[in-house]
Structure formats: structure tokens, C-alpha cells
């Protein structure tokens, strides 16, 4: 399986080359185009209950699609719904990532996707909701973001502060606490940041350069209000 990011920037696509018999799972609706040798199957990852809980708990799609090169090698083009960058990670079975609910685009066969419940303060204030995806296993993992993706590398005990709802994915070796952006409660909200996540290394944190919630609020003012 080989992969390549086409048109890097705001509107990228991923081209995945599959050998005969190989398959890749992708977010439902992610397939843009593919070779005629590839079959598209709809699959409820983790069984019906797993899919149901993913749908209701994380807001991810109920079905994943599986693209399988059943009739010989071929390629598939995949793209996310929102404008924003794509990043390809290689999982080796030891490093696993927490991914916020909209971050997953595609993953190789050996990738395991599970729902994970966050603690109360992280769930309420972290901006990712109570349930996130815990992605582990072996193989390629494709993530997408809203805006550009920025990688933060943290050494052991190195700290970094990220505004909530800018998170895309982070390694499970990092840890984070939710705190107020400034020392006072009022200033914390008037500064426009509210709560922030203080990350502590080691590990990687991927953040997105735009905040989907704020963008939604901004665009709402231009939508005409009909009855």
C-alpha cells in the first residue's frame, strides 16, 4: 500500500495505491474516484453496537466504507468533507493516537478504531466532547483537519498550551489538563480563549489552524433567516 497527498493545501486529496487483495477503510463518503478493480463495501466497524455508539457518542459516521482491491491492483482517491490539510501517519503497533471525532479520514486494514471516553473536565471543556477515537494498530493512518495541520513535537516534560477545539490528534504518551486561559475567570472569556489545554510531553500533538465552531458561528451571521 502506497499513499500520496495530492494538491497539498486547503483542498487536498489522498491517492492510495492498493495491491491485489489489499483494503483500506475510510470515512463514509470519503471516496472521490477509484479504479474499476476496487470494490466499495459499507461496513459497520466494531459491529452494530460499536457503529451505533460511534455514531451517537462521537458523531462519526455510522458506516465506514472499505475499499478493497478484489480484482487486481488499483488506486483510490479520497478526500475529506471540510477544506483543510491531510496528514499521513504510520502506526507501528506501539504508538497510538487519540483523534477528535472529525479527524479520521482513512486507515489501513491493521488499524484499530475504538471509542474512548474522556474524563469529566476534559469532556466538558476540552472542546472534543466526551468521546474521542482511540486509534491503534499497525499501518497507515490518514487524518484530516479544518485549516492547516500543525505538528507540535514535545520532549519529555515539555509543555505547550493549545486552545480547545483546535486539537486534531495527540499521542497517548502525552497528557493534558484543562485550564483557564488567563488567571481570572472574566478575563479568561473576554480574551476569547476561555479554556485551553496544557499538554505535557513526550509525544506529538497535531493541531488545526482553524476552529470549526468559531467558523460556524462566524458564517451563521450571513445565512438569511427564513421562517
Amino acid at each position: 500500500m502506497k499513499s500520496e497527498i495530492l494538491y497539498p493545501g486547503a483542498f487536498p486529496m489522498v491517492r492510495v495505491e492498493l495491491e491485489a487483495g489489499e483494503n483500506i477503510k475510510a470515512e463514509s463518503g470519503a471516496m472521490v474516484a477509484c479504479s474499476p478493480t476496487i470494490d466499495i463495501e459499507s461496513k459497520m466497524e466494531g459491529g452494530f453496537l460499536g457503529a451505533l455508539s460511534r455514531k451517537f457518542l462521537t458523531g462519526e459516521k455510522f458506516f465506514f466504507q472499505t475499499l478493497r482491491a478484489t480484482r487486481g491492483p488499483g488506486e483510490a482517491l479520497l478526500a475529506p468533507t471540510v477544506p483543510g490539510e491531510i496528514v499521513i501517519l504510520e502506526l507501528d503497533g506501539v504508538n497510538d493516537y487519540m483523534v477528535q471525532k472529525d479527524g479520521f479520514l482513512a486507515g489501513a486494514e491493521g488499524i484499530v478504531i475504538e471509542n474512548k471516553m474522556q474524563g469529566l473536565s476534559r469532556g466538558l471543556l476540552g472542546g472534543e466532547g466526551f468521546f474521542i477515537l482511540n486509534i491503534s494498530g499497525k499501518g497507515m493512518l490518514v487524518l484530516n483537519s479544518f485549516g492547516a495541520i500543525h505538528k507540535i513535537e514535545l520532549k519529555p516534560n515539555q509543555e505547550y498550551i493549545v486552545d480547545n477545539s483546535h486539537l486534531v490528534a495527540w499521542s497517548s504518551t502525552t497528557s493534558y489538563n484543562i485550564e483557564k486561559a488567563t488567571s481570572g475567570w472574566v478575563a479568561s472569556f473576554t480574551s476569547g480563549e476561555g479554556f485551553v489545554c496544557r499538554f505535557r510531553g513526550p509525544g506529538l500533538v497535531f493541531i488545526q489552524s482553524r476552529n470549526p465552531g468559531s467558523f460556524g458561528a462566524w458564517i451563521r451571521q450571513f445565512i438569511p433567516v427564513s421562517e
Binding site: 507501528d92 506501539v94 520532549k155 499521542s171
Partner: peptide, 19 residues
């Protein structure tokens, strides 16, 4: 070999070296 841990240090990548 199938790694079972991640090692961090100055000469390793920030994601950690599987070992």
C-alpha cells in the same frame, strides 16, 4: 521484532522510537 514500548530521548524523533 514487534516493539512493545516507546523510547524518548534527544536523538529520537518526538513521536518516540519503537523498541
Amino acid at each position: 521484532m514487534s516493539p512493545n514500548a516507546l523510547c524518548f530521548g534527544d536523538e529520537f524523533p518526538a513521536a518516540g522510537a519503537p523498541c
